[in-house]
């Protein structure tokens, strides 16, 4: 995977607030991820995990607070350029169904990175190979299983050589037997030194792969720390209650 990690950066989310009308989704959320580290964000549904993730690549603009890559605020950057540095993988894959797998990956390489066709195809095939789907280049997304589609989505994001990867419940829509393959790809990526933020319900993955586990509830990160500390010695009562429900 070493070819996929450009130069990982550190990531910091500082006191981010966001409201949709009267509904305050984020109420001063903080998250720090060291360069090349993996942070898993856990917490109950509706706690603001996915929204927090979207403020990092500014699919959602925060009302207040800051997002820093390598210590520099990205809120003044061109959001489209920022999103080429910050890859994202979604719960529902969001592959483009009218294009082949290969085309899904080459689209941004050709149109945004302005790479020539053969160079884009070479990179796309390399990425597909890394997620074990080299044989599926000419298939349509609908012809693949959910797990395969998600691995294509990961390859599509990695092809742009991002400095940070965001995963939004990447395995929640998958049949149980397909989860492992996707988590395996994510674990490989983490050990290759990618800076990652992983919103997940997979506590086993968080415990084994994460450098930091952050527990979110009601729009704030209530507790964050090394997996052992968060899982074995949770301090906050709400985290204790959450863990007793999911473990």
């Amino acid at each position: 995977m070493s070819t996929t990690t450009a130069t990982p950066v550190s990531l910091a989310v500082r006191d981010v607030h966001l409201a949709f009308g009267a509904h305050r989704v984020l109420r001063g959320a903080d998250l720090t991820v060291a360069r090349g580290a993996t942070a898993c964000v856990i917490g109950p549904s509706g706690s603001g995990k996915s929204t927090l993730l979207r403020t990092v690549n500014r699919l959602i603009e925060p009302d207040r607070g800051d997002v820093l890559l390598d210590g520099r605020s990205v809120l003044g950057d061109d959001p489209d350029a920022l999103r080429q540095r910050v890859g994202m993988v979604f719960q529902q894959f969001n592959l483009f169904p009218h294009m082949t797998v290969l085309r899904n990956i080459t689209l941004a390489l050709r149109r945004l990175k302005k790479l020539p066709e053969d160079e884009a195809v070479r990179i796309a095939r390399e990425q597909l190979d890394l997620v074990g789907l080299a044989a599926k280049a000419d298939a349509r997304p609908a012809q693949l299983s959910g797990g395969q589609q998600q691995r294509v989505a990961i390859a599509r994001a990695l092809a742009l050589r991002p400095q940070v990867m965001l995963f939004d419940e990447a395995t929640s829509a998958l049949d149980p037997e397909l989860v492992k393959g996707v988590l395996g790809v994510m674990a490989d990526l983490a050990s290759a030194g990618m800076t990652m933020v992983v919103v997940t319900h997979e506590m086993g993955f968080a415990r084994e792969v994460a450098d930091t586990v952050a527990f979110m509830d009601h729009g704030v990160v209530l507790e964050a720390g090394e997996p052992a500390a968060v899982f074995e010695a949770p301090e906050h009562p709400r985290l204790r209650r959450f863990l007793s429900q999911v473990l």
């Binding site: 979604f90 969001n94 941004a108 599509r156 994001a157």
Partner: peptide, 20 residues
């Protein structure tokens, strides 16, 4: 979600509409 997927790759709104 298709628009979000395209925007997350770095496409502008216009490019996302036109291509996806």
């Amino acid at each position: 979600a298709q628009l979000e997927g395209a925007r997350a790759l770095g496409f502008s709104w216009g490019e996302a509409m036109r291509l996806v």
